[in-house]
């Protein structure tokens, strides 16, 4: 048995201090485009991978930028600056400029093939908070009601003389409704989403026809019944109700 260790009396600032967001009591959406359907974000708590309901998955999507003369830092810089433009059609990311720790963005998500709700609104309005960002990576954490409870990390690195870009999700379905959806095929839709994103990113760097790899690990096969109550925050249900109530809002506006 060896001697106990103790914490240093004086704490020096950590090298990563500027890369991390500060803890928040509730999310606050800053100034975003009026085009956004801003629901299910303001005031919500963050919901990490331990707070979700469904099985926990680690999914790693990776693409090699073969032939592109770019460093990981250049990839991340341009990815941050142009993040929304790589998403599949119909899906919108409303944040500020770039990607900074603490930034909150509203997501307006479409269904397969860019399918929107009647009237052109999103099928799901939810959000993310940027919890970490450095020169080679950045990470989002999801709020209550998002389809996933967890973290998604975007990164780039050199491997075998080639720069690779990667998306890694460590997530559970937030609630039982989403879990059923994922088991019925929505997880595949998530795969299509991030593969499309990486392919579009590769195109941006002049790498055409590259195919992303996908590695899937089932981290926890159990569901967490104690988190079934998360269904109260379900952003798909809440966005659907908002869409259904649109005629009532129109009538009220006309009556004023």
């Amino acid at each position: 048995m060896s001697e106990p260790t103790s914490q240093p009396a004086t704490q020096l600032p950590s090298r990563d201090a500027a890369n991390w967001a500060k803890p928040v009591d509730g999310l606050k959406v800053g100034a975003i485009s009026p085009e956004a359907t801003n629901l299910n974000v303001e005031g919500k708590q963050l919901s990490g991978p331990l707070a979700g309901f469904g099985q926990m998955w680690q999914k790693t999507y990776r693409i090699r930028l073969s032939g592109a003369d770019v460093t990981p830092e250049q990839v991340i810089k341009l990815w941050k600056e142009n993040f929304p433009q790589f998403w599949p059609k119909g899906n919108r990311f409303f944040g500020g400029v770039g990607i900074e720790p603490g930034q909150v963005a509203v997501l307006n998500l479409a269904g397969p093939g860019g399918l929107n709700a009647p009237g052109g609104g999103p099928l799901i309005s939810t959000g993310i908070m940027v919890i970490y960002a450095d020169d080679e990576s950045f990470s989002f954490m999801t709020p209550q009601g998002h389809m996933f409870a967890g973290m998604i990390t975007f990164s780039a690195e050199r491997a075998a003389e080639t720069t690779c870009a990667q998306v890694q999700a460590l997530v559970r379905a937030s609630d039982p409704i989403y879990e059923i959806g994922f088991r019925l095929g929505l997880l595949k839709e998530e795969d299509r989403f991030w593969k499309y994103t990486l392919t579009a990113l590769a195109d941006f760097f002049g790498v055409h026809g590259a195919e992303p790899d996908l590695k899937i690990v089932l981290v926890d096969p159990k569901v967490q019944w104690a988190q079934a109550k998360n269904v109260w925050h379900n952003s798909a249900v809440r966005t659907g109700l908002y869409t259904l109530a649109a005629p009532v809002r129109w009538i009220r506006r006309l009556a004023k």
Partner: peptide, 16 residues
């Protein structure tokens, strides 16, 4: 006590 640096992938590692 000897932790010098941690990024979000490190947090992911602790979760798993």
């Amino acid at each position: 006590g000897g932790l010098e640096y941690m990024n979000s992938s490190g947090i992911g590692l602790l979760v798993t």
